[in-house]
Design a protein around this nucleic acid. Sequence first.
RNA 1: GGUCGGUUGGCCGAGUGGCUAGGCAACGGUCUGCAAAACCGUCUACGGCGGUUCGAAUCCGCCACCGACCUCCA
Length: 489
Amino acid sequence: MHKNLKIFNSLSRKIELFEPLNTPNVGLYVCGPTVYGDPHLGHARPAITFDILYRYLQHLGYKVRYIRNITDVGHLENDADEGEDKIAKKARLEQLEPMEVVQYYTDRYHEFMKLLNVKSPSIEPRASGHIIEQLGIVEKILEKGYAYESNGSVYFDVEKYNKEHKYGVLSGRVLEDLYSSTRDLEGQSEKKNSFDFALWKKASPTHIMRWPSKYSDGFPGWHLECTAMSARYLGETFDIHGGGMDLLFPHHECEIAQSVIAHGHGPAKYWMHNNMITINGQKMGKSLGNFITLEEFFTGKHQLLKQAWTPMTIRFFILQAHYRSTVDFSNEALEAAGKGLKRLMEGMAQIEKIKAGKNDQFNVEEWSDKCFEALNDDLNTPVLIAHLFDAVKAINSAVAGKIEMSENSVKQLHDLFRLLVVEILGLETETAAEETSETLSGVMDLVLNIRQQAKMNKDWATADKIRDELLAMGIVVKDGKEGATWEVK
RNA sequence: GGUCGGUUGGCCGAGUGGCUAGGCAACGGUCUGCAAAACCGUCUACGGCGGUUCGAAUCCGCCACCGACCUCCA
């Protein structure tokens, strides 16, 4: 019923109505991590952004096949495709088999994604497991004459491609500009032009990750894996291709070129790109060395961090900004996010305590429409969150007896709030209180009863002592009109 | 240098040609034995200069500053 999701398509640079190629099925492909280092805050952004999309599409009733790859080969370290494979390098440094490195960081990635409550994709293919498919595409492109062999490597001929097709449709690049801007990289290259990109790279004698092919013992070029794996699992044309904005050029541009030649058309109907997380106004990234890993956030062990932040605070922090805007990290921003999240989650819990009345001073339907409108508007989570806070205000007022809500409204609000917060935004209560044992709650009832007695006897010393010492143990006592409640901090 | 994007109140962050999100912080009040929580209220911003318009933070132009991409990056 709310099926008028609109998304910003990087290809047209416009907001478009989302219409699947083959309703109710939706194919979604997102570029995953290169597993050669611990996941940092920047990795959390696309994971969470597309997690929201995945969850929301499912909520809308689509059957979604979500592919997020693991890049474990062929990602070259230096410019001009002349560098050393990232994973192989790390492996040599640490005296490990490359696949050990891959396994370790893949596990780490999964571990942290799980903490962030990011759902697993339907399929998580590895580049190294699809060498045959990639070689198949190399073959096709060679056959069609848009690639050339050079010293055992195969390169895509961008200049030739650009004559019949437009290179740069996604990024807005013009080939002529690339001649000048990349001029100084030429020289010892095997490539005809510096902007040609590798489809297959011959491995140097010391290179450990290698596969046989008729061109050479080598490994596939970076852009090829996504073309091969998306085609294999989603078909040659699918609905949405996503990734970070930094992948827009050259990675996604090259994917389109490869696909156009190999399959006769671009891979995806919609392209979506999330913006970067910045730190002091600069992109947080590996190359700048200004990144903070997720583990550091969760433990607080980083010189720039004032304290540890919970996974849900990180998630909420990211969702408070629109995915196409940059979001600037700071302790203050995280602190504000953490407190806001607490208010939101407590508000959700308070719904249970509303005593339904006769009048209805909160229009749930109108509110609900606004919430879905925000989601439909290119996944505008910050606006959705603003609406959620409006509801929190109403909930608190209702609990305080300042406004009335009908029984039906309370029920609707309860269900909708949970749907939006838990199912779609993927926010969960993190307090240990969730796992409160019967024993503890029994003990707490007793303790609070004794305190209540003390209060009635105006024995403030005892009452305060109980409150203060519970606080020291991490249990917050909240006095209310109907007696005290408590929660584990 | 080229291409693209941004500049919003103390901070973070939405947004729209007129009805002026939200969170955090701050201040005042209600409640409370005190406090916390909660509630109510206050704080009215859109880089600069021009232009279009009855009306612009929102559209156009110029300028300034910041950033992304052009090499690996989410």
